[in-house]
């Protein structure tokens, strides 16, 4: 079911990141409607890696920091290292997952949610920290340290933005 849903997502031209950003209810609808209609799908995409949401989030955050830094040059010195950290996280996650990053990185136009302010970025970092902490708890041993560092980094970003 989930697999069929993800095939439909790619058919509809949305990136997975955008769909993940949408509400869970919407994703559920897509999945439901997919069940009957696409039973004959020959090769459903493999289930996404458990760390894929973390990778998507890192790219979205990197883009958000970059966007705000461009819009508010006074914040650039603070935000640019945070954007770079998220990109470094994405590179490591992609290596562990065994995937490649989207070429050109996330477009700065990606997923605008809420106001582009330092306070909004801080909220995003806090939410992303929770995602990473949950992923760390359920990660196999060989991934726990990397994911733990990413969770701690996101918490420290939120502190840096205070």
């Amino acid at each position: 079911m989930v697999l069929t849903g993800s095939v439909r997502m790619s058919d509809s031209g949305h990136t997975r990141r955008r769909v993940l950003g949408a509400s869970g209810a919407l994703a559920g609808l897509v999945t439901l409607s997919g069940c009957g209609l696409f039973d004959d799908d020959p090769e459903p995409a493999p289930a996404p890696d458990a760390l894929q949401p973390l990778l998507d989030e890192a790219l979205t955050l990197a883009a958000a920091h970059t966007r705000v830094a461009l819009a508010q040059p006074a914040l650039a010195a603070k935000l640019t290292p945070l954007a770079e950290a998220h990109r470094a996280h994405a590179v490591e996650l992609a290596r562990v997952i065994g995937t490649t990053l989207p070429s050109g990185g996330a477009a700065p136009s990606a997923a605008t949610t809420g106001a582009d302010t330092a306070a909004a970025l801080r909220k995003s970092e806090q939410a992303a920290q929770k995602t990473a902490a949950a992923a760390c708890r359920s990660a196999p041993a060989e991934r726990a340290a990397l994911v733990g560092s990413i969770a701690a980094a996101r918490a420290s970003h939120a502190e840096a933005l205070r």
Partner: peptide
């Protein structure tokens, strides 16, 4: 910078 890229 105020933060490390990979704390720990």
């Amino acid at each position: 910078p105020l933060t490390l890229i990979f704390p720990g």
